[in-house]
Simulated scan of single mutants.
Amino acid sequence: MGMPEGTRGPEERRLGPVIRRREQIQPGTTDQRLLDSEGDSEWVHTDPWRVMRIQSEFVEGFGALAELPPAIAVFGSARTAAGTPEYEEGVRLGGALVDAGFAVITGGGPGAMEAANKGAREASGISVGLGIELPFEQGLNPHVDIGVNFRYFFVRKTMFVKYAQGFVVLPGGLGTLDELFEALTLVQTRKVTRFPIVLFGTEYWGGLVDWLRNTVVAQGKASEKDLMLFHVTDDVEEAVGLVTKETGH
């Protein structure tokens, strides 16, 4: 059913929800491009195809984590060395969270994340790692029992917030700060409710807290009550007690 000879091409073409007109009309049809076994393969790198990848990551993440019991996410530096006091505190924290009835979710990497996963596994709890594709990827640590690797940071972040009832933040770097401030923003804007955030390590986090109080709040960039969105402690039992109390678990 070709176009009659002498007839001009269409001025408008509808491709599902997309309308193309004039010079933006593409030759061929969607079915034709799907069934054509030859041609350019660059389409696998286009934004519409990435949307499908993003969708698949959400589906896989939701499917893997939907049946988790109440869980707490533990963040911290991948550079925390095994055997150090910080590492051992992470191990104790992971075990104590399991003893309180929580699953433990981390970023799945080495260092502080590995410590919390190790503590959870040794306490016979559920140890979860949500990894991310990085140029220097080291893979999930051996103490992870349920692991999901993500391509996109924002999908991974959604999983942390959706399936954790609170955060405990061990000393960490830029990635840890990213997760911390996203959580604080979500609580401040009431996108999430009943979401305890505990900073573990008063010496490490003290400078940040002072800056928030003496600069950010003092200059009116945040309110005094925003300092109540988080707690700071050096005690594992207190950290677990805080997340237990605020989650009503």
Rank of each mutant, 00 (worst) to 15 (best):
M3Q: 10
Y87T: 01
W205Q: 04
L229R: 10
M228K: 14
P196F: 09
A78C: 03
F195D: 05
I54L: 09
M113H: 05
D226Q: 09
L35T: 14
M1I: 08
G206R: 09
G241S: 08
P110Q: 06
E38P: 00
T7F: 15
E11R: 10
V232C: 13
G207Y: 11
T84Y: 05
E88A: 03
E203I: 06
F230C: 02
V148H: 08
Q24F: 12
L15Q: 09
R33A: 08
F102R: 04
E12V: 06
Q32Y: 13
P142T: 12
V232Y: 14
V236M: 07
F150S: 02
V91P: 00
V104D: 09
D178E: 15
V74D: 03
T215H: 10
A218Y: 11
T185K: 03
E224P: 01
A78Y: 06
P110K: 05
A164L: 02
V198E: 07
T106L: 04
W211F: 15
K221H: 14
G248F: 09
V198A: 02
I126M: 13
V98P: 00
H45I: 02
E38V: 07
L180P: 00
A73D: 04
G206T: 08
S37A: 11
R194T: 06
H45E: 10
V104G: 03
M159R: 00
D40E: 09
R151Q: 15
G95W: 09
M159S: 01
Q138G: 06
E42I: 08
I132H: 12
W211P: 00
G206P: 03
D210L: 07
S37D: 11
E42A: 13
M113G: 01
P10H: 10
G201T: 08
Y87K: 00
G201Q: 09
R22Y: 13
D36M: 09
G28S: 01
E203A: 13
A73Q: 02
F75A: 01
S56N: 14
R20P: 00
F136N: 10
G131A: 09
L35S: 09
M159T: 02
H143C: 04
T189F: 15
D234G: 01
G108P: 01
I132L: 15
V209P: 01
A239L: 05
A66G: 04
E12W: 11
Y152L: 02
Q55K: 12
K191G: 04
L93T: 03
P10Y: 12
A115V: 02
G90V: 04
L97I: 06
F181D: 08
E133G: 01
K245T: 07
G63S: 15
A103K: 03
G206A: 07
G111T: 07
R213H: 11
A66K: 15
R13D: 10
F230M: 05
A115I: 03
V236R: 01
R8S: 11
A164M: 03
S77Q: 01
G28N: 02
R22I: 01
V104W: 13
F167M: 04
G248Y: 12
V217P: 00
L140E: 08
V217F: 15
G201E: 09
E5Q: 12
E238N: 04
